[in-house]
Nucleic acid binder design. Structure first.
Lengths: 212, 212
DNA sequence: TAGATTGTTAATCGATTAACAATC
DNA sequence: TAGATTGTTAATCGATTAACAATC
């Protein structure tokens, strides 16, 4: 019987961190315990044990986990083996940065094409991809079975870009624009909100000034 | 008596979103209620009321909040008026994107200088700033009273960049590299972890395939 | 006044942490 | 065997949501 999907969203967010660390020590450490992993990443060891248990269950008392086995389990769970085709809208600085960043392929993400509404940008290249006009969006999405869209346009154009993606059958949107997007039920938006992170950092700094 | 700082980190992360939305409707809406705001951003209305209550308390039954007053309260709380000088290490694509992005100044962040360890990049410009060599880091930090550092180097160089920042007196680090950083007590690290977000999105997509 | 809206107090929910039994 | 480590069950903690009283 297949175990129910009981992995919480918080756990899900930590899994790539485990995977990344394990890959960096594979070879050096043939086995690794939850305690060691927790220490390396600054997490609670029980938390790590629980997280790993929900995707692997191959840990053995006294020994810990076989590093390679755990990597394989994590990659399987995260779908790193399968390709997830994606499109990106907005080929400004941030868009170009994401296009050039090679690290996503480790997690199965493949940005198949980039789009921009500005004629000045269409035709230029970034990360070995040529930027296309918005009129090509539907065809590309259909041909590649794209269900993931990345939005890196300015705030003002984000909702419009989002609507177009949804029309083309996209079911998950990675939003880098500082706006809240309205989407139909069944479409997931993940906001990469830089202003939120900045607020946490700034507060830490000002808090120190007046702190005890 | 000054109210104790009881704002939770989750609330703190939402405050910039309120501020951003309010700015977009100022003029059009002289007053706004928590209910309307919640609706616009897709939050629970009680949550919004609680969030706003912790930084403003100027809401009035039947009327709601004066938009301008609320904006002022949020800006005051978030320290948008005061300048927070920061340095950035790693002038690759992502680093350049952040340097060129003008939106941070709305929240008081001012990237005073960018650094890179590669001679090939030193001397080039990005976002009107010239990239400097790492040897200049200490001087710049001291002269500008920098306590916030942004790391946009590849994973392998992140800890080293982090250590240098801490040595120069930085107390808050915004880490875009996919690694966990070790820092002394009192230094806050905020990880902008793209792999985590990607995991959530991917799981949503694969979950649909097998889902009920 | 009546009703919309605030702000607060209590209940629920979910995630983290602690305690402990199982096992190699 | 003894002890390290896993995995599970219970307790704690924090955040969200619901219920309700206060008020303009």
């Amino acid at each position: 019987m297949v175990r129910a999907n009981t992995v919480s969203i918080q756990t899900l967010r930590r899994l790539p961190l485990y995977l990344h660390y394990l890959k960096s020590v594979r070879g050096a450490l043939p086995r690794i315990s939850a305690t060691v992993l927790a220490d390396a990443l600054g997490f609670n060891d029980v938390q790590v044990r629980k997280d790993l248990g929900s995707v692997s269950g191959n840990g053995r008392p006294k020994k810990g986990y076989e590093t390679e086995e755990l990597i394989a389990d994590l990659e399987l769970y995260l779908g790193c083996d399968s390709r997830t085709p994606a499109v990106l809208i907005g080929a400004g600085n941030l868009g170009r940065a994401l296009l050039s960043y090679g690290g996503f392929s480790d997690y199965g993400l493949e940005i198949v094409a980039a789009f921009d509404s500005s004629d000045a940008v269409v035709g230029t290249t970034a990360g070995k991809k040529t930027v296309m006009g918005m009129d090509k969006l539907r065809t590309i999405c259909e041909e590649n079975g794209v269900r993931l869209g990345i939005i890196t346009v300015p705030a003002a154009g984000a909702q419009s870009a989002c609507d177009k993606l949804v029309e083309c059958g996209v079911k998950a949107i990675w939003n880098f624009a500082p706006t809240t997007l309205k989407v139909p039920h069944g479409v997931l938006v993940e906001n990469e909100n830089l202003a939120s992170s900045l607020a946490v950092l700034s507060k830490h700094l000002t808090g120190e000034d007046t702190g005890a």
